[in-house]
Structure formats: C-alpha cells, structure tokens
C-alpha cells in the first residue's frame, strides 16, 4: 500500500520531507518514489496539512452486482452514444466548415464521455473484476486479425484477480 501525492492539493508545506523515513517523498517530479516508500507506513499521510497524500489501496472490493434489466438498458444507451460519436467524428473529418468541424469534435468527445460512463455502470467499473477478465479472455480466444494480443495478455497477467 504505497502513498500517493495529489499534486493539485499539495501546498508545498513539505512536512512529508521531514517525516518520511526513507526519503521517498523527496523527488524532483513530486511523485512519491514507490520503490523507496514503506507500504502502510502512513507517516506522510498523517503529517500533510493539505491532505494531499493518501494511500493507494492494495486490494479493491468486488464490484456491485448489476441486474440484467439495468445492464441491457445501459447498453442500449451506450450503443446509441457510441454511434453518435462515430457520426460526429465522420462530420468532424469531412465537413468543409472549420466551425462545424469544431462543433462535431465537441459532440464526439461528449459522446465518448457518456458512453464510457454509461457502460461503466453496466458492470465494467473495476479493471480487476471477474467480468472484465472474462471479457479480455473472450477477446483473446476470438482474436480477429490485427488484435493487440500482447496488450490483452499483459492485462490478464498483471491485473490482480479478485476472489469473491
């Protein structure tokens, strides 16, 4: 469980420098050095007056179980948003007008955000979840041409399994 500093909250109070027993917080780029950080030590977390340091969890809780009616309804909307993104992207590439292209670009980005959020709530929130693992396995099994198999296999190897 290493510590993580949120640079946006960091008030450069620098108390973490004094309390850290290993110097892990004293880095050029403000990112706490995971190699030096003593997992679970908490000294910097407790010392920081700006509440800018927190611990990254070791384990993530199993995700909430999604009901099929919810999954299906979310997917209908997710599909629609993905299609709208595609239409907007096509217009953003083909239109002659710079203003129309700009507006279409905004619509494409907006739809990607919505599709991600809506489908995340269809049961794909946690990268470590069984459902996500299953999806990656199915993709590898049915890998179409050009599929980035290495990336998918890396995910299966590296993502921690959640035992429910």
């Amino acid at each position: 469980m290493p510590a993580y500093r949120n640079v946006r909250l960091c008030g450069k109070d620098c108390l973490c420098l004094y309390v850290c027993p290993t110097g892990a917080t004293d880095t050029e780029n403000s990112i706490i050095d995971v190699a030096k950080c003593i997992p679970g030590c908490m000294a910097c977390v407790d010392a920081c007056p700006s509440s800018a340091i927190s611990m990254l969890p070791d384990k993530y809780p199993p995700p909430q179980i999604k009901m099929d009616t919810v999954i299906m309804a979310q997917r209908v909307l997710g599909q629609s948003k993905v299609q709208q993104e595609k239409i907007a992207e096509t217009i953003a590439t083909l239109s002659d007008s710079p203003v129309t292209r700009q507006f279409a670009k905004a619509i494409a980005k907006s739809n990607r955000c919505m599709a991600e959020d809506i489908l995340r709530e269809a049961g794909y929130m946690l990268p470590q979840s069984t459902k996500v693992r299953k999806l990656i396995e199915i993709l590898i099994e049915n890998a179409p041409a050009g599929f980035p198999k290495d990336a998918a296999e890396l995910l299966l190897n590296k993502l921690q399994k959640i035992v429910v």
Partner: peptide, 16 residues
C-alpha cells in the same frame, strides 16, 4: 458486445 461498446468499455477501464 459491439466493437463500439468494447472500445468505450476499454477506454473507460484505461481511465480506471
């Protein structure tokens, strides 16, 4: 799942 859905699921998981 359609290709579009998988893409959005994966880009959301990348954010996660």
């Amino acid at each position: 799942l359609s290709a579009g859905e998988i893409s959005a699921i994966c880009s959301s998981l990348a954010k996660g």
